[in-house]
Amino acid sequence: MIDSLFQGKRVTLAALDLDADAEVISRWTHDPEFLHLTETEPARPLSPGQVRKKLQPGDTEGSSRFTFAVRTLEDDRLVGLARLMWVDWSNGTAWLKLEVGTSEDRGRGYDADALDLLLGYAFLELNLFRVTSVVFEYSIGAIHLLESAGFACEARLRESIIRSGRRWDVLLFGLIRTEWEKGRGKAEAAQ
């Protein structure tokens, strides 16, 4: 049995507490880099009230979507959001989305740790067969992160988005349960 479904080495997957968290998430949306890493919609700053509306339980919870707050173990600070969306139970698939709010918190191990936890949740709790993640060609950090976790780039939708005046591909990364188990076995053996 695993005893650490929600607790990693540096972060936990926790419930979203919109009353308090909306202030922090609102600050993130004032940074276009944050929005450009995970959204295709035009960047638009959101007030705490708008964030609450966007992340209301109807949009974040349910049998086909799971949203977690990513908080540091050290000081319980909200650093990101981790989600599994569009869970398709009959086929055993879901789409995974991980957002880290500020550039200072990216690439510091929080994201890798949160991704590990989210994959554990997808494969050991939801018992899914595979997960898919969407990344933009310019998100080098996200591509490295997914590759380190064992994801393979499966599709390249050519010239799908325009950012900074040029067109970029949208990449679809996938990870199959058996691949994840193999990678996990290796990681455990190395410890």
Binding site: S90, N91, G92, T93, F129, R130, T132, A152, C153, E154, A155, R156, L157, R158, L172, G174, I176
Partner: peptide, 9 residues
């Protein structure tokens, strides 16, 4: 442009 491997059952 690519294929999501084994996406359907």
């Amino acid at each position: 442009e690519g294929r999501l491997r084994q996406h359907l059952n």
